[in-house]
Simulated assay, not measured.
Amino acid sequence: MTTPLILLPGDEVPNDHLPTIKSHAKSAPLKIGQGLRLVSQPSTTSTPQSRVLKATQAGILTTDSKRKIVSLLSFPNRRYTPTVNDLVLAQVHHSSADYFHCILTPHTPHAFLPQLSFEGASKKTRPNLKQGDLVYARVLSTGVGASAEVELTCVNPATGKAEPGGLGPVTGGTVFDVSTGMAARLLLATSSRADDSDDGVAGLVIISELGRKLANVGGFELAVGRNGRVWVDCPDAEEHAVPAILAIGRCMQLTDEHNLDLADQKKLVTRTLRELKLAS
């Protein structure tokens, strides 16, 4: 078993830990995920190995050679620090003339969400969000300094359209709290699941296991925020909706709390579904 590579802010990623990119053949470009920054890009005459990536936070390097993705998993109990492009679940605290003032965590200043930063929004059609309402958004900017204002958006600034991830107001369902490290793993696992990748991405198998075993009651929907909040809903589960949501939340939180391996995660899913009478 390969020893995990731990990086600190400013550390350079060794080239031998990066997915292999062919310079002459048509292949997917390297995708840079959370916690890393591209310092220099290889030119057309240089080799792909001449690119330089550096860590922007402390974490464990993770790579997906099949999908050409490299990212940094933060440590489980790391305090959330907003970073540009992060997906977050924000809760509306109050509104002003042009902004919704949103809570990302109890320990950070309110983030600002422009009332027109929703797909198709105008002064007449902007969403009427109240205190306590949830929004799935992306961090647009963070400014500079400890007291810098964080701005959120629910659209792609280049197109004005909501992204495929379902950005916008979130209704129904239930929100569960997890560590920031678990949130990063869940984001990686859910994106890989959407691409039909192998199980066990980021050391998680609960999402794929729950997806298979809850398919007979209508499946479920997830929205994972890097700020350690996960929204879960089962809109097609009818009378099974509440126990299914509880099962998903319990599996995520226990896996996070006890750092369960893949085998124990599968056992947890089976046991939880049986206890909640969702499986025989």
Rank of each mutant, 00 (worst) to 15 (best):
S96E: 09
V155I: 15
R271S: 11
E221W: 08
L278C: 05
E12I: 13
L167R: 08
K31F: 08
A263I: 11
K123D: 10
T174E: 06
G120T: 04
T153Y: 06
P82D: 10
P127D: 07
G33I: 08
G35L: 06
D264L: 12
N128C: 04
P48M: 07
V205S: 14
K66G: 09
Q115P: 02
S65W: 11
L167Y: 12
A137T: 06
A146E: 13
E239L: 08
S179W: 03
A183M: 02
L61A: 02
L30W: 11
E238G: 05
V135C: 04
D198S: 10
R229T: 01
I60V: 14
G249S: 02
H258P: 00
Y80T: 01
N15G: 12
H24C: 01
E149F: 03
F75T: 03
Y136K: 09
A55T: 03
V201Y: 03
L278R: 05
M182S: 01
G59T: 10
R37L: 14
R226G: 05
V205W: 01
L129P: 00
C251V: 14
A121E: 07
A162R: 12
T255S: 07
S191V: 04
S192E: 09
D133V: 06
L72G: 04
L204V: 07
L18A: 05
K68F: 01
T47W: 11
A28R: 15
D198C: 05
Q91N: 10
V224L: 06
L116P: 00
L134D: 03
R138M: 12
P14T: 14
R78F: 02
I21W: 03
T47N: 11
G218S: 01
P164L: 07
D236W: 08
G200V: 03
A183C: 10
N227E: 04
T153H: 06
P42M: 10
R271V: 08
A25E: 15
A158M: 12
